[in-house]
Computed example of a mutant assay.
Amino acid sequence: MHIMETDGFLFGPNKTGKTYKSLNYHRNAPKPGKSRWQDDFTRDHEFDLFCACDENRWLCVDGNYWGTLNGKVIVGTAEERFSFCPSNANPLVPWHGYPISSCSRDYKIPEQIIEMWLKAEIIDGITAKRIRSAKI
């Protein structure tokens, strides 16, 4: 279930009590410097991916969540295959996320996250190698 707000749609709480906001500027007309979700990757899909990150603890030491469906499904308009949810220490503020690419200088997917995905069979060895070499 979600609630429409002026800046996006508020989801949750999820199983661990966290809320998530699907922000309009990651959905609508391009805003400089902001990545956008694919139109067919719905807000519900976005929340589901956040919940998978949270429930599986795909969390790095900096407190950021990193997500993927399988390293192959394109979720962003610039062919991004991963999501990033910046650390949120305030439980009163909803989490949010956006699509990223492993070849972005700003978002290097941590090795511990790649290893978690491999162990859980979310990604395969070839995909892990491509992430590590910033090819996808």
Rank of each mutant, 00 (worst) to 15 (best):
I122D: 01
Y98M: 13
V61T: 09
E79Q: 12
C51S: 11
L92W: 09
L92P: 00
L69D: 08
P32I: 07
S35F: 00
G8Q: 02
I113V: 12
R36Y: 11
I113S: 09
S102L: 12
A78M: 10
Y20Q: 04
Y25L: 09
R43A: 14
F9N: 10
C53A: 15
M116R: 14
Y98T: 09
L23T: 02
Y98C: 04
R27C: 07
E115T: 09
A89R: 07
M116A: 15
F50N: 01
P99K: 05
I126T: 14
I114T: 05
L69G: 09
D124W: 11
G8W: 05
S87G: 07
H26V: 08
T16Y: 11
K119C: 13
G8N: 06
I74H: 11
G67A: 08
T42P: 01
F47G: 00
D40M: 06
F11R: 01
M116K: 15
I126A: 10
C85Q: 06
L118G: 13
S22C: 14
R27E: 07
M1H: 13
S104M: 07
F11I: 09
P13Y: 04
I74G: 05
R43E: 15
L59K: 12
G33I: 12
F50C: 02
D40H: 14
H96R: 06
D48W: 03
G76S: 09
I100H: 04
P110Y: 10
K34V: 09
R105L: 12
W117S: 02
A29D: 14
D106R: 08
E80F: 05
R27L: 05
K18Y: 08
L92R: 13
N90K: 03
H45A: 13
R105A: 11
Q112R: 09
D124T: 10
Y20C: 04
V73W: 05
P99L: 06
G63L: 03
C103F: 07
H26W: 08
P99F: 10
A52D: 08
C103M: 08
A128I: 03
E5H: 02
G12E: 01
Y65I: 03
C103N: 15
L118Y: 15
G63T: 07
S102G: 13
S133L: 10
G8P: 03
A128R: 01
I131E: 00
C53N: 13
S22T: 13
Y65L: 07
V93P: 03
S133D: 11
H26S: 14
V75A: 00
E115M: 12
P32G: 10
R27N: 08
I109Y: 11
P99I: 12
I123G: 01
T127K: 04
H2T: 04
T19K: 10
T127W: 03
T127Q: 11
R132P: 06
I123A: 01
T16F: 10
D54G: 02
I126G: 14
E80V: 05
G12D: 01
